[in-house]
């Protein structure tokens, strides 16, 4: 068995209690088996399908990364957002408000089985936040959305409704795009 190490990290804004874990434990296992946060899903265990994507809030801004191949040895001391941390919740952890990305996924009927949905929520949210800092021209939005979500595998939906939802959030949110003004503003 591998050596043990004590880790603690910030998950959805809350610092975890230090806990002793195998040093080769993956972040996904930590979330699921130690924190019971199972919204981040295991799809392939090799970083290919991105069902396990979480947002890392690092010094270079938010970035989606695969939790199934990211070890706690690196995650230790860092901050992450999982799918459970996007919506606002009351004291009983019931959802009280969801994010524009989540709302758009609902409105567009973006998912079917929803196994990959947490990964798409993470990737789309990270994209939206990246565009807040670094907006792109309106005419590039579709390409940017495709590039940002192309790593996420979905077997049910054919991607159309995820990508359209993400595009619409970006076009509807002031400040994410440059260039041509949106019709409703002009």
């Amino acid at each position: 068995m591998s050596a043990l190490m004590t880790v603690s990290m910030t998950i959805n804004g809350t610092e975890t209690e230090p806990v002793e874990v195998p040093e080769d434990l993956m972040l996904l296992e930590f979330l699921q088996e130690y924190l019971n946060l199972t919204g981040t899903r295991y799809g392939c265990g090799q970083g290919v399908c991105r069902a396990c994507a979480v947002i890392h809030d690092g010094p270079r801004g938010p970035r989606a990364l695969p939790a199934c191949i990211t070890g706690v040895a690196w995650a230790n001391g860092r901050a992450f957002r999982t799918v459970e941390g996007h919506a606002e919740r009351d004291d009983e952890v019931n959802v009280t408000a969801i994010t524009p990305v989540q709302q758009a996924f609902l409105d567009h009927f973006s998912f079917q089985c929803s196994f990959c949905t947490p990964g798409f929520v993470s990737a789309a949210q990270a994209l939206v936040e990246r565009l807040e800092v670094d907006p792109v021209p309106v005419e590039d939005v579709e390409d940017v959305v495709l590039a940002a979500l192309n790593e996420n595998i979905c077997r049910c939906t054919g991607y159309v409704r995820y990508l359209e939802a993400t595009r619409d959030v970006i076009l509807a949110t002031p400040g994410l795009t440059t260039g041509v003004e949106r019709a409703e503003e002009s």
Partner: peptide, 23 residues
């Protein structure tokens, strides 16, 4: 070693054993 465990071992194995045909 910590960086290896945190960023590489998920695919290349904690003992460097890799994964057949993938890593």
């Amino acid at each position: 070693h910590g960086l290896y465990m945190g960023l590489c071992a998920g695919c290349h194995g904690s003992e460097g054993e890799g994964q057949p045909f993938g890593s």
